[in-house]
Design a protein around this nucleic acid. Structure first.
Length: 546
RNA sequence: UGCCCAAUGGUGUAAUUGGCAACACGACUGACUCUGGAUCAGUAAAGUCUAGGUUCGAACCCUGGUUGGGCAACCA
């Protein structure tokens, strides 16, 4: 087994503003188990985890939950988390996904120790399979997949044994080599572990451990034609790498006995039979993330992308990590959210509102405020000199004094939100209304004097007079005014395209149904954004409203 | 009729491991007016799926049941 090393290069405490800041928080059941293993001196007190994505799609917010656990456990207990691509199925996997996955993990603030691939172990797994055949623990089955499925039985009925189950070892050995040499067509034969066709656990009914795939592999090319199945690759890969805690989601609970059995066999073959209980990976399962109104399955996300329902994996409506990134979510907000939902063994359905509250909480603390008018109507300050411009000051973040301020321009003609003016207002309407005063944020107190309407009765211009003694900072500015509205100067703003996205799915628990997508929410709206320069590309800003 | 897992306010988690059921989100009141999707003050909301048992004492341990989830890909 490999020696343990600390591979971490970055200082997480500074790169992640909110990482693990609540020390009083109770341990989740996995952390408790890790601490117990540490107390008991398991695995020579090493902690090693892995994040094992299959490179067949982009990472989604559910993967973020697994990433935070795999990397978080390693970080919090002085261990290492490696990245291992589970690339045992060349028909679905490619390098585009490998690169995207790495980018997303790093964006979340994590750095893996080593970058491994299950395909790195194809030779070792092959040797192990050969050894199993020699020991009478695996055999080549030449039946069709239909026949094998039929013999598997059902959850309530035992299976029946394959007629090839007890064929001579030499024969299996020879055929296994042929499976890999390219002489055997896909589907013609498989290698099966000889376990127990009557076992109540379906995964023990002589599981298929190798099959023929003729599609070239994105890393090993055409070197192999026989590829190991997940169950025959994952646990052994963990073992080869020295993983101590193999964390995965609940649907793998029923796979665990098989995971353990293959590691047992491997340890026996390697002469570690006298120490079966220690120095081996242990699988622990936690609940995967379900979000209401959100479908997480990679299969269906792929369909959305391929059929053009969305504009790519990073469409802001997608629950992918890159989608949330484009939507303006910060890594910190994702961490906050993951921290709030916790890890249990209960298959929960989380409220999307909790995720939204996490990004609001984070942005409220760190985002620079910039004025934008999304649904503009013209406001003319009739007593302000034409052609005059003055510079005013606007603080960048009311929650953070150190964030400083920026200059903004004020002039006679402004844009304000349509909904910030009402000719006949209801009670408790404190915004612009004829005869009433309102404060223009960071500028003057103005009194509304009326408006102009078009032939349809639509308000096209609003008029007001300003009080020159009430500029922000002046003593008169402290006068009590019931309402404050935001604005941008017409001569000093830029047009922006705004898209107000709604949720993609309109059923609370879509699970695996693709149907009933919302089809609205992608129509651009023209908005007015105050021109701030220089504004760094991709800065995180927050409109003061909307 | 199989095997495995789970169940605590509307949602998600917690309860110093057998000792007064707490926190967050959400909802609702109200206040505040240099915005607010903020802040502040407050309210409602579970008696822990159910029936027993053990115990001075059970959300927690035991037994039966109920309900939900997972398991029968040459996917992972």
């Amino acid at each position: 087994m490999e020696k343990s090393h600390s591979y971490f290069t970055g200082d997480f405490s500074t790169s992640l503003r909110f990482a693990r800041n609540d020390e009083n928080k109770s341990l989740n059941f996995i952390e408790a188990k890790v601490e117990e293993d540490l107390r008991n001196g398991k695995n020579a007190k090493r902690i090693q985890t892995r994040f094992p994505p299959e490179p067949n799609g982009y990472l989604h917010i559910g993967h973020a939950k697994a990433i935070c656990l795999d990397f978080g456990i390693a970080k919090n207990y002085g261990g290492v988390c490696n990245l291992r691509f589970d690339d045992t199925n060349p028909t679905k996997e490619n390098m585009e996904y490998v690169d995207a996955i790495k980018e997303d993990i790093q964006w979340l603030g994590y750095q893996w120790g080593n970058e491994y691939y299950a395909s790195d172990y194809f030779q070792q797994l092959w040797n192990f399979a050969i050894e199993l055949i020699k020991r009478g623990k695996a055999y080549i089955d030449e039946q069709s997949s239909e026949e094998i499925a039929a013999q598997k039985g059902t959850p309530t009925q035992p299976g029946t044994e394959s007629p090839y189950r007890n064929r001579p070892i030499e024969e299996s050995l020879e055929l296994f080599n042929k499976m890999n040499s390219g002489e055997i067509e896909e589907g013609r034969m498989v290698l099966r572990a000889k376990i127990d066709m009557a076992n109540p656990n379906m995964h023990f009914r002589d599981p298929i451990i190798y099959r023929v795939v003729k599609t070239p592999h994105h890393r090993t090319g055409t070197k192999w034609n026989a590829y190991p199945m997940y169950d025959f690759a994952h646990g052994q890969s963990d073992y080869f790498e020295g993983v101590t805690h193999s964390l995965c989601t609940l649907e793998f609970v029923v796979h665990r006995p098989l995971y353990d059995l293959f590691v047992d066999w491997l340890k026996e073959i390697r002469g570690e039979g006298d120490n079966m209980d220690d120095n081996r990976p242990r699988q622990t399962e936690f609940n995967k993330l379900n979000l209401n109104y959100t479908l997480m399955s990679k299969r269906n996300l792929l369909i959305l992308v391929k059929e053009g329902v969305v504009n790519g994996w990073d469409d802001p409506r997608m629950p992918t990590i890159c989608g949330f990134r484009r939507r303006g979510y910060t890594p910190e907000s994702i961490h906050k959210f993951i921290d709030k939902i916790g890890y249990t063994t209960y298959d929960a359905l989380n409220d999307f509102a909790l995720l939204e509250s996490s990004i609001r909480e984070d942005l409220n603390a760190c985002a620079t405020r910039v004025a934008a008018v999304v649904n503009p109507v013209k406001l003319v300050i009739t007593n302000y000199p034409e052609g005059q411009t003055e510079e005013l000051e606007a603080i960048n973040n009311p929650e953070d004094e150190s964030a400083g301020s920026h200059k903004i321009e004020f002039s006679r003609e402004l844009w304000i939100e349509k909904e910030d003016f009402m000719e006949c207002p209801p009670n408790k309407y404190f915004r612009l209304t004829p005869g009433k005063e309102v404060r223009l944020k960071n500028a003057y107190i103005v009194k509304c004097t009326g408006c102009k309407k078009d032939e349809n009765g639509e308000v096209v211009e609003v008029y007001a007079e300003y009080d020159p003694m009430t500029r922000s900072g002046m003593p008169e500015a402290n006068r009590k005014v019931k309402g404050t509205i935001h604005w941008v100067s017409q001569a000093h703003c830029i047009k922006a395209e705004v898209r107000l996205y709604d949720r993609l799915w309109n059923v609370e628990n879509p699970r695996d149904e693709l149907a009933r997508l919302q089809d609205e929410g992608n129509t651009p709206i023209e908005a007015m954004l105050r021109n701030i320069s220089p504004m760094r590309n991709r800065s995180i800003i927050s409109s003061s409203r909307e």
